[in-house]
């Protein structure tokens, strides 16, 4: 079944812009990215949109559909009300380049600030052996396709531009958690305390665990429950827990 749907697409660049109305044909089974492509082909050949795989695996077509951060290629038209205009805008946390394309370099900057995996002493690449149950947690986080929808929806930076220098965002706090849970990461032996850096350098305390990152993740990673809260708990171990403190005192005496 085909029908004509009304769309409002944000057109412009960093100097200004606005929502422009279009009427586009929609066919059964299509996703919003199909409509954007039809729009480019028939009415707006200069419409800028970033896309690649059309399969929800490259993380390129992140945008906002009816105000909700979504992958354009994974948002079925059948999930949207057919009698209401569909609003498509770029992600509103990052500087816009043109139309639906944003400058996501904030994320690459933050990625570089996370110290990478520290290889264990005495093991060469190829000699690493890990039990599956030890890497399950980290493997969940490795599903991340870096669409940056979690970064986009996180109110800490979305609503407070001034927090960007101090806060790495859910994606990169999840990266810290992944490494801190990694069975072979030797950061601690090299004097790198990932729990301390999560708190003091990546702004873990700014997260108020309102779970928007989890809600928007197209890979359904439980970012808050499995990465951010465990990381907060590890910080509590280090700084606030009375029993852990007592245990460490007793261990030191032995």
């Amino acid at each position: 079944m085909s029908y004509q749907a009304n769309f409002r697409v944000w057109r412009g660049d960093s100097s200004g812009g606005g929502l422009e109305p279009y009427q586009v044909e929609v066919n059964e089974g299509e996703v919003v990215l199909d409509i954007v492509h039809r729009l480019q082909a028939t009415q707006a050949p200069d419409l800028a949109v970033r896309w690649n795989c059309k399969a929800g695996k490259c993380g390129s077509c992140s945008a906002e559909v009816n105000g909700r951060p979504r992958l354009l290629c994974m948002t079925r038209m059948s999930t949207l009300p057919p009698d209401e205009p569909v609003t498509i805008t770029p992600m509103r946390t990052f500087p816009v380049l043109r139309d639906l394309v944003t400058d996501v370099s904030f994320n690459y900057t933050k990625a570089r600030e996370v110290p990478s995996f520290v290889p264990p002493q005495g093991l060469k690449p190829g000699e690493y052996r890990m039990a599956q149950e030890d890497v399950n947690r980290s493997q969940e986080f490795r599903k991340c396709i870096e669409c940056f929808l979690c970064q986009n929806t996180c109110h800490v930076v979305r609503d407070h531009e001034e927090n960007k220098p101090a806060f790495s965002g859910p994606r990169f706090l999840m990266r810290v958690a992944e490494l801190d849970m990694h069975p072979l990461d030797a950061a601690a032996e090299e004097g790198l305390d990932r729990k301390r850096s999560a708190q003091e350098e990546h702004g873990l305390g700014m997260c108020n665990i309102t779970k928007c990152c989890t809600e928007v993740c197209p890979e359904h990673i439980k970012i808050t429950d499995n990465a951010l809260i465990p990381l907060k708990e590890r910080a509590v171990d280090r700084k606030y827990d009375p029993l852990v403190w007592l245990g460490s005192v007793i261990k030191r005496r032995k």
């Binding site: 109110h155 702004g203 700014m206 108020n208 809600e215």
Partner: peptide, 27 residues
């Protein structure tokens, strides 16, 4: 803080759970 995902919050500044009193959430 926030009212809902992708709905702008009304506050002018935000420090999360880094300062008193919300740092006490760690207990």
């Amino acid at each position: 803080s926030p009212p809902a995902c992708a709905v702008a919050e009304p506050h002018a500044s935000y420090s999360g759970e880094t300062r008193f009193p919300l740092v006490l959430q760690n207990i």
